[in-house]
Design a protein around this nucleic acid. Structure first.
Lengths: 265, 265
DNA sequence: CCCTGTTGGTTTATTATATGAACCGACGGT
DNA sequence: ACCGTCGGTTCATATAATAAACCAACAGGG
């Protein structure tokens, strides 16, 4: 592995639950030698990708990412593109809509929108990492990624997020097959009790899966008739999003979606 | 220089005017060998910091920065902290207020707010890099950074942005001295014709200059009386921003600002 | 008041890794 | 068919990354 990769991989240990990490902790977490870790972090700090807190000397994500993110958004206004679509999706379904993004082998929440239809709704967090085996978005993505990558994910221990979360690889695999057969992913109470969710995979310009778009609702409202309506709205939103950034829908999936759309006019 | 630094420095060639760069161009710009450049970019792409456009095979900033930026904002809500302050500043002065941030030796626009008072106003761009010798924010920062860093910037060729932009290092240096003497920076028509601007430096927790806050207006509206009112509003805003993130104002500057505030009640 | 286990950071010889000149096939003009 | 340039690859060479041991400083605990 390249040195640069090692340095960049250090950044992936920072997340919402652990936004600041000390040198020794980071070395332990990453398995990188402490001296190496120090040098790498120093270089990241030099370029503003990381930052050292004055007092505690711990590290956190640096200010340079703000400039880069603004640049990225300017070049590829992904979130700007997603927001109106999600808002419309939330409004027509009356439930919470969200989009997630595959980056560095992890699925992160990119944007979301709420509906005003119900007082009780599913709430989202910014930049939250979604477990593949416990969310509909995760299954939608997992089912359409390259087999080696999916295997790499399945070979890691699967945490039981709720009592209903599948933790055995065979169970996950059979769900993946089902997702491929139906063209969409559905979960209920696998990520949080009383929450059901419906998701579609999203693809980039190369036709590789790049994320998912989903609608989450209380299980009591995700009844068959509502699900059917939600699914057609979801398909329209997915098509719109991918049209916006030149994503390529695989042919078989496109056919499946078309069938679904025609079945529910 | 470390390999990681070399890789990260490649990211700095992407900006608003050049959001996508081909391999050969990037190698030329950075002076890095083409093969090396390729390998480094491949590693950046692997981690999502860069991305390759499918068709043209050119590179641009990648999607991972979005996750990192969200994380950074969550840990250090800089922009969230700045926005209400800028909005109030824009409202009380009736002009465009903006804040910029020193990152990797460059001054980048972080946030800005407009006033509804006038139809004609100075417009800002996201993540724009401000030339040190052509903007009031640049002078405010330049005048308070460590001499070696300032010298490094002055040793580079100074582009004549407008007809009034100082391009000779002695001129810039005398302006810097003036900024230090007065406690604030003022420019007129150095960045764009008919635009005048007033800026204050901002400091981080270590007391090192970290950016600037400024008000920009048409020269015809930046008259002495308006300038005095703007300056006091600017000082209040700068103090508020630094209080919000624990910035340390150098003692002499704090005294200068206090005098100004007391002179204009 | 020492003991012990941390912390962030530094030094060193060793070696693995980055490097760059030359090369390749593909594309676009002329 | 020629020429220049593109993104990408190869491989011998040498530079840059590495990790163990070592600091000094701090924080409890006995």
């Amino acid at each position: 592995m390249g040195t640069t990769s090692k340095a960049l991989s250090l950044l992936e240990y920072f997340d919402r639950t652990q936004p600041v990490i000390g040198l020794s902790d980071l070395a332990r977490l990453s398995g990188v030698n402490k001296a190496t870790c120090f040098r790498l972090m120093s270089e990241l700090v030099e370029h503003g990708l990381a930052e050292q807190i004055t007092e505690s000397r711990e590290y956190r994500i640096g200010p340079a990412v703000l400039r880069l993110a603004a640049l990225r958004e300017a070049a590829v206004p992904l979130r700007d593109l997603a927001m109106p679509i999600l808002q419309r999706l939330a409004q027509t379904t009356g439930e919470t809509a969200h989009m997630s993004h595959l980056v560095g082998g992890r699925l992160a929440t990119l944007a979301y929108a709420y509906s005003a239809a119900h007082a009780m709704k599913v709430m989202m967090e910014d930049a939250e990492v979604l477990p593949f085996h416990a969310t509909s978005s995760g299954y939608a993505v997992l089912a359409h990624m390259t087999p080696p990558l999916a295997e790499a994910i399945l070979s890691q221990p699967l945490a039981p997020v709720t009592k209903s979360t599948p933790v055995r690889a065979p169970d996950v695999r059979s769900r993946m097959a089902e997702v491929r057969r139906l063209g969409h992913a559905r979960t209920a109470e696998t990520f949080e009790a009383d929450v059901a969710s419906l998701a579609l995979p999203l693809f980039d310009a190369r036709g590789a899966v790049s994320g998912a778009i989903a609608v989450a609702a209380p299980v009591t409202r995700m009844l068959p008739s509502a699900s059917a309506r939600t699914l057609t709205a979801l398909i329209a939103a997915a098509r719109e999003a991918m049209a916006g950034w030149g994503g390529q829908i695989p042919d078989e999936l496109d056919a499946l979606w078309r069938q679904t759309q025609e079945a529910t006019p």
